[in-house]
Nucleic acid binder design. Structure first.
Lengths: 224, 224
DNA sequence: TTCACTTTGTGCCTGCGTTCACAAGCGGTT
DNA sequence: AACCGCTTGTGAACGCAGGCACAAAGTGAA
């Protein structure tokens, strides 16, 4: 029944492709030529069948009896993720977290170029940041439109997030990464991913709670 | 037959409970007394049936014909997540991101107490951070054991992450939040959650790529 | 009490994602 | 050339999660 159109990659797979890509980059640096699904899966921390199925969505890349050519596979994944072209981004909200994000070298090295850092606080505007300066949020639309920015990163307080989000979307941004602890409402054509630090901690707290509850009685699963 | 043991809450539900909790806290601040699943679901950005099913795992909390008592529900969720007791945490790796995390007020306000900030760089050791000072990583085990730390946050470079992880686990930590772009290997009884900033951007990049491919022609993916 | 109305809690169905297991395919060897 | 051993790619089964739709259960009014 479910005949997936070629090029239609499941969401869960996309998330893992990014991990495989990183692992493969490491292998390239180590001058590894070929890798089997078993090896790659072990390093990436997933099941090898899952890995093969993930890669199969990109076409038939491997060689049976041998494995995958590391550089070929890396290129294929990169192109599937649309990483062959640099993407322009803006960062809004230059507090503690915003500064950290601006300083994170992982973005630039992976093809993401930040063309503007914005804050609403007049006291911060003009401060140097990375190789640039913090701009007034009033210039947001101008910069987004002139650079054709496609990804907006929100690191503002929760109260400001939705407003900032709407301004980004209206200016033409179609993907948003949200660090503010707030639920964003966007049109259908816009993608949002959220990173909720407090929620992550609370999820861990839940598991801690669960584990400590299980200690007394015999309910725990076998400890390896 | 899906007979779930009482107290067994699905993983997907746990993640959403944290969101509901935040929304409810907002409602308490706004002196709201009662809320229906429809209202709460809208604010939280989920389907109301899903929300009701999520809450049903906590027991029968609502009142039919009325809705949920905001404070009662909030308490119930907080206790399910194990947030009634404060949890002690350590943060390892005080670079850009580490500083931002240390300064994030959302942790402390939600019951997480950081009892140690560690770095391997001798030049950084002793620097003030929040209401404390950066400690030498050599003291990690001592602090973890003496405070009974249950959650470790890793914000080191990728190369150091696995080693730090093992030291944390050996010292007794059973939950880890990993910000390093690296796959951690841990024993079965330890929970790991990862926050991979570059991966998030790459996932968005994928969707940008997909959107732009679909714009002009009706054709996709003809690789030669 | 009985009725009308509201909202919860959930049975059931559907679909996605994961895993198993194996046929198909490739390289190396004799 | 024929065979053997290894690894990929995938059909099929399974399990978890999401969403509809409705019975159950509460409130308030007559």
């Amino acid at each position: 029944m479910s005949e997936r159109r070629p090029g239609e990659i499941p969401e869960a797979t996309v998330a893992r492709l990014a991990v495989y890509l990183r692992v493969l980059t490491g292998l390239v640096d180590a001058s590894t030529v070929t890798v089997s699904s078993e090896e790659l899966a072990t390093i990436a921390g997933v099941n090898s069948a899952k890995l093969r199925k993930d890669l199969s969505y990109l076409g038939s890349i491997g060689t049976r009896g041998v494995g995958y050519d590391v550089t070929v596979l890396r290129e294929k994944i990169a192109s599937s993720l649309g990483l062959t072209q640099r993407r322009t981004c803006v960062l809004v909200g230059i507090g503690n977290l915003g500064h950290a994000l601006a300083g994170y070298s992982g973005f630039s090295s992976r093809g993401f170029t930040f063309v503007g850092y914005f804050d609403a606080d007049p006291a911060r505007v003009g401060e140097p940041i990375v190789d640039s300066r913090i701009r007034d949020i009033a210039e947001l639309e101008l910069v987004v439109k002139s650079h054709g920015v496609s990804i907006g990163v929100i690191a503002t307080p929760a109260e400001a997030a939705q407003t900032v989000c709407e301004r980004l979307v209206d200016a033409g941004v179609t993907s948003i990464l949200n660090f503010a602890p707030s639920v964003l409402t966007v049109p259908d054509n816009v993608d949002v991913r959220k990173v909720d630090l407090a929620a992550e901690m609370q999820i861990l707290s839940f598991h801690e709670h669960r584990k400590s509850r299980g200690l007394g009685n015999g309910l725990v699963e076998s400890v390896g």
